[in-house]
Amino acid sequence: MAGQMIMIGFAHDSAKSEQQSRLVSLLETGQIGGVMYLKYNIKSLTDVANMNREFLAAGGRVQPLIAIDQEGGVVERLTKAVGFKEIPSARDVALNMDKNGANALYADLAKRMKKLGFNTNFGPVVDLLINKNNPIIAKYGRSFSSRADIVTKFATAFVDGHRQAGMITGLKHFPGHGSSATDSHLGFVDISNSWTQAEYEPFAALIANGKADMIMAGHLFHSGYVVEGEKQVPASLSPVALTTVLRNGMGFDGVIISDDMEMGAITKHFGFEEAIVRAVNAGNDILLFSNTVKPSLGLPKRILDVLETEATRDPSFARKIEASYRRIIALKSRLN
C-alpha cells in the first residue's frame, strides 16, 4: 500500500541500462507505484517506448503511473529534437483557439503520448495569470488567463482531450501559483498577501464537473493555512489546505499528489522524514520525488522505511496510507 504512494524520477535513458532493470524490479515488487520522466530521460522516442513497455508490464494487474510534464510551450519534455511534434503554450492556446480547437489539439497530443506508453500528464496548469512578473508561471506562458472562467474552459478541453486517449491528468498547482513573486523550485514562496479567492475557482469548478483526476499540491505558503502554534508549512504539507479546504470544503476525494518533494521550498526547510510524515498527514496520496538531488534507486526504500515506521507508531497514519491506497487504485482502475 505504501509503495503505491511513491512516484520517482530516474537518471537513465535506455531500456538496455542496468538501472532500467532495477527500476522495473521496484515496480514488480510494489516498492513504487509510478515513475516520472524529465527531459534528460528522453534520448529517442524508440527508447522511451521501450522503457515504457517494460514499466507497464512490470505493474501486472495494477498499471504504474507513467508521468511526464507535457504542458505545451516551454514546459515540454518530449520535443521536436527527438521527433515529437510540439504544441503551443497554454497562453497561446487561449489567445488563438476556441474550446473545440483546444480539445482537438490536446486530444492529438494525448494520443501521441499514449502511443509511447505514457498514461499520465502533469497538466493542465489552472493557476490564474495574476502577477505578470511571476517567474515560473507568467514568464513561460503556462497560465491560460487571468480569468477563472477562461482557465476552466481551456483546462476542461485539456482534460477531455486526454481522457479521449485514456490518459490521466493532474490539475496544478493548488491553491494557486499565479500570484507568487518567487519560484518554489528555489525556496520558500509566500502568497499570503498576493493570493486571491478567485484562484480557488478553477479547481472548484473542475472538481464539481468531474474533471479532476488528480490535483497537485503546490509548495506555496499561505498564512491562512497555518494552525496556531504550528510551524509555517506550505500548502503541500498543510492539513488545513489539503484536508479542510480541498477535501472537505471542495468535496475532492480523488488523488492528491505533492509537487516534487526535492524542491527548495521543502528541502531547505524540512528534514527528509519530517517532510514525508507531514505530507501524508496533510492529505497527499502520492509523494513525488524527482530523484535529482542525489539520484539513487535506493530512494524508494528510504521513503518506504519512513512510511512503515510511522504507520507502526501511529495507527491513524496507517489508516491514511490505506485511504490513499484506495484512492490510487480507484484512479488506476480507469486505465485498464
Rank of each mutant, 00 (worst) to 15 (best):
G251P: 14
G251A: 13
F252N: 01
D253Y: 13
D253K: 15
G254F: 03
V255Q: 00
V255M: 00
I256K: 07
I256M: 08
I257L: 03
I257K: 00
I257D: 03
I257P: 04
S258G: 09
D259W: 04
D260S: 14
M261L: 14
M261Y: 15
M261R: 15
M261G: 11
E262A: 07
M263A: 04
G264D: 15
G264R: 15
A265V: 06
A265R: 07
A265H: 09
I266T: 11
I266Q: 02
T267W: 11
T267Y: 12
K268R: 15
H269W: 12
H269Y: 14
F270L: 14
F270R: 12
F270C: 11
F270Q: 12
F272L: 06
E273S: 14
E273L: 04
E274Y: 08
A275C: 11
A275T: 08
A275S: 14
A275M: 13
I276P: 04
I276K: 02
I276W: 00
V277I: 15
A279T: 01
V280F: 00
V280I: 10
V280Y: 00
A282N: 07
A282S: 12
A282K: 04
G283C: 08
N284A: 03
N284F: 04
D285G: 00
D285R: 02
D285L: 05
I286T: 00
L287C: 01
L287P: 02
L287I: 03
L287W: 00
